[in-house]
Write a protein that binds this DNA or RNA. Structure first.
Lengths: 152, 152
DNA sequence: CCTTGACTTTGAGCGCGCTCAAAGTTGTAC
DNA sequence: GTACAACTTTGAGCGCGCTCAAAGTCAAGG
């Protein structure tokens, strides 16, 4: 009977929405500090680990590159003195997130437009029957894809 | 002197915020139909091409996989009859975009929180001077990373 | 004792989306 | 005529972020 309570890698993976493979990988590349082991050598994760891993997951899910996460993790290990630098990383990432949100929102709007257009096309087909086979509109460009927000 | 007016690949790349390499690649993999050529064999893009390429760019920028874009492009070439299927693809992608926006917004909020926390840490350092070197808080877990929204 | 299953390590492999290198052609400028 | 720049094609290469295969260890159950 081996002790050291804490979460197994399997459990941890489930709790954090990632695979055990990924958890080991993150540890290998220094995103996670060497994890406590049970007597048999198996990893045992703490709540603090979970906290950190959730954070990692959140950063990855928002497209922070592994390299940047490594930089952040390394600073974190050096304690409060690196606060300013770490804050800078997070601020930059937050700005990047804002940029992504904007881009997604523009695309979302464009899609709303295009989807409405498809509904119209389907309507016309239903009315006109299977007659007019293609492109009864001006161009065969099916709609105004050109409704695109200006790049900054 | 060779004619066929239209945009060169270079110009098109600039206008659409991608590289010429990528434009050729998209054509190779069927995302773009074979483009008109000038007498010397160089590609000449039309405004309609630009329209479509902008759309492709927009979909890629919001993480639609190339495979899905290929599926969509293939349907598009078959004309209005595929409207319904194409609409489905766009609706699915729009839903995926909504999901991404939510995720990004959650991360954005988390970062606001963490950044504020770093400011506090920096404040304490400025006041306490270079004395207390590390971890004068409860744990060395620098803040409540656990403020994480519930996964659906 | 033997099987089962959950873990371990190491290094290799993979899917994606480009990105580039090499070698060739064409058109213009000097 | 020759240099240069801009394009062409083909196929290979690359960076990222996992993902997996292989071989081994250990503990519990039958």
């Amino acid at each position: 009977m081996v002790n050291y309570s804490g979460y197994t890698i399997r459990t941890m993976a489930e709790r954090c929405g990632m695979t055990a493979h990924t958890l080991r990988y993150y540890e290998r590349v220094g995103l996670i500090q060497p994890v406590n082991r049970a007597g048999n050598g198996h990893r045992r994760y703490t709540d603090a680990d979970e906290c950190w891993i959730h954070f990692l997951h959140c950063m990855r899910a928002t497209n922070m590159p592994i390299r940047e996460m490594q930089r952040y993790a390394a600073l974190r290990e050096q304690g409060d003195a690196t606060s300013l630098e770490r804050r800078k990383i997070l601020e930059d990432h937050q700005a990047e997130i804002a940029r992504q949100i904007e881009e997604l929102q523009r695309a979302h709007a464009l899609l709303t437009h295009k989807i409405a257009n498809y509904r119209k096309i389907e309507q016309r087909i239903r009315i006109g029957g299977p007659i007019l086979p293609e492109s009864e509109m001006a161009g065969n460009e099916d709609d105004c894809t050109c409704m695109l927000a200006p790049a900054s």
